[in-house]
Every structure is written in C-alpha cells, then in structure tokens.
Amino acid sequence: PPTVTDARIFTVLDDKGIPLHTPPERQIDWREPFVAREIHETLPRWQAAAYLADPDFIATKAEATTSVLWVLTAFLLFAVAGGGVVMTALLGSELALARKKTDLVTNVSHELKTPLTSIRLFAEMLMADIAPSATKRKEYCTLLVSETERLSRLINNVLDFSKSSQGKKQYRKTKLDLVSLIRQTVSCEELRLKQKGITLRFRSRYKKVEFTGCRESLIQVLVNLISNAEKYAASGKMIEIMLRKEKDTIVLETADRGPGVPAWAVKKIFQEFYRVDDSLTQNAGGSGLGLTIARMIVTDHGGQIDYQPRPGGGSLFRITFPDNKEEHSHGA
C-alpha cells in the first residue's frame, strides 16, 4: 500500500526511533506512533510504524460519535417517556371503556326488569279477571303494549349501537308523515307517563309534514328523547314535543322542566355510555346510549341534533331535518 495517504503515514523506525522516511510538510511527532511493530528479530528495536496524518482525527471522531450517542440516548429516553405516557393514557381509556360497558350491562339489566315486571303484573291481573270492566281491560292492554314497546326500544338501542359500531346499520326509508308518526308515538307513551304524573303534549300548526326516512328509526329517536326527559322530569311536570318549519328545514323539539344539563356536561351528553354524574340525576336509570343512538339516526337522515337549556329551566333538544320541499298542510 502507499506509504502516505490523507489519513495515515507508514514508515520504518530505526533502533533509535528515527524514521527512515519522513514525508515533506508533515508536522508529526515521530516519538508516538499510532501503532508500531518490531520488524524482525534480526533487526532488534527496528519497527514498522503507522502514524495518523491528522493527529486530531481520532479526537474529532470521538467527539462527533459522543455527540451522536448523547442525541440518540436523549431521543431514546424521550421516546420511552412519551411511549409510557401514551400507553398509560390508552390503558386508562380502555379501563374507563371497560367500566362503562360493565355499567351498561348493569343498567340495561335494571332497565329491562321494570317493563318486564309491569308486563307480568298486568298480564296476571287480566288472567285473574281482577279488572272486569271493559275500560280497565283496555287501559291495561294499552299499558302492556306501551311496556312491550319500551322493552323493544331498550333492546333496539343496544342492537343499533352494536350495528353502528360495526358499520352495519341499515335503514328502510319511505315517504311518511311526521305529524302522524309523532301523534301515534305520543299516544303509545302518554298513558304510561300519566301513571307517573307526567303529561306528554304534542303541538304543531301543521296537519301533515311529509319526510322521507326510516319510520322505525325516527320513532326510536322520538322515544329515546321522551325517555330521557322522563328520567329527569319530576312528577307533575310536562314533556312537550313541537314540530314546525323554519325556512328550508323541519324542526322537531322535545322540552321538559327537569334540572337540565350542567354546562360542563353539554359537550359530552351525546357520547356513548355517558351519563351525567350529578346529585340531581344520580338516581336516574338508563344505559347511556339513548342520546348516542338518537344522534346517529338523525345524522344518517341528513339532520342535526343539539341541546339547549330551556328558558325558565329544563332541557330542550332540537332536531333539524332538511325540508323535502313538499307542500305542508296547515292545522289549527
């Protein structure tokens, strides 16, 4: 190999350590070779030696390597710390979700018991002929239907949430009359609510409002909102449903005189499994899915749903749908 390059110098040192060949214009300390080895036993103390062309080369490389190692170490520590924070947050989120799902099972089980108990009670009364009058029998049958529909709603909420999570929710949309749909829903719910001292009232100046949507799903939205108002409306209070038009939109509102939603919880009430933890509402049942399902259905129908505090106290949920431009018949 060449004796002189930009990186190193090869030479031979005599027995006194003096190089036999010294390249010109090189400032080298010949007393300290980078590496040296004796040539042969016949030439004692004669050595083949190698010198660095730049004596500071190793120091410079070492400093650069040290800097890189420090940067990599800092990055590794940051990554470990950041990863720990992220994993802790994810674990906390998963644990919170697991608790919510456990609460869902508990709440749904409790919610299912109430209509089942009522259905059994009225069925046994009819079988025993305890209510012989035709009026009472009709009332009990109406309550049986109402409780059965309530049971179906609870089951549908859970099933719809499962379908929506898997992207399998489907709708059978047809042209329907929202006024008729709301009146029929109110008719099914008002007797059961009357038993609790709650009045359910529907107001609209239209006799007919045509809209294209899934009938069962829209009923589910309305019943979920009524059920939500029922949980928080004290005995003797009224739940109102209003239907009107505003420019190119159809507006459906449900209003109650319950405690309302605290300002800090307004943005969370449509989240799945979320239930307001408040001294005024802590005894109210529910699965925490009613408003979530309502928002999902409304959104899938091209509408929006939001919450507003009701003037004078209570809650007001407003749903807006795009108007289909059909002529609407006015009522009194």
Rank of each mutant, 00 (worst) to 15 (best):
P1G: 11
T3H: 09
V4R: 09
G17K: 01
P23C: 00
E25G: 06
E25N: 15
Q27W: 10
A36W: 05
R37N: 05
P44Y: 07
Q47A: 07
A53K: 02
D56V: 07
D56L: 09
F57Y: 11
F57S: 10
T60L: 13
T65A: 10
S67W: 13
A79Q: 14
A79V: 14
V80C: 09
V86H: 11
A89H: 13
L90M: 13
S93P: 03
R99S: 14
K101T: 05
L104F: 06
N107M: 07
H110C: 10
T114R: 04
P115A: 03
I119H: 04
F122I: 04
P132C: 06
K136M: 12
R137L: 06
K138C: 13
E139G: 02
E149I: 13
E149F: 12
R153D: 15
D160I: 05
S165E: 15
S165H: 08
R172M: 11
L176M: 13
V179E: 01
I182W: 01
C188A: 15
E190H: 09
Q195P: 02
K196C: 04
R205M: 08
Y206R: 02
K208D: 15
K208W: 09
G213L: 08
R215V: 12
E216F: 07
L218E: 01
L218M: 09
Q220A: 10
Q220T: 15
V221M: 10
I226N: 00
A229L: 04
K231W: 03
S235R: 12
G236S: 04
D256M: 04
D256V: 03
G258A: 02
P262L: 00
F270S: 00
E272A: 13
D278S: 03
Q282S: 12
G285H: 00
G288N: 02
L289Q: 00
L291H: 00
T299H: 09
G303H: 00
G303W: 01
Q304C: 11
I305C: 00
D306M: 05
Y307I: 01
Q308I: 06
P309M: 03
R310M: 01
P311W: 02
L316N: 01
H328A: 15
H328C: 14
G331Q: 04
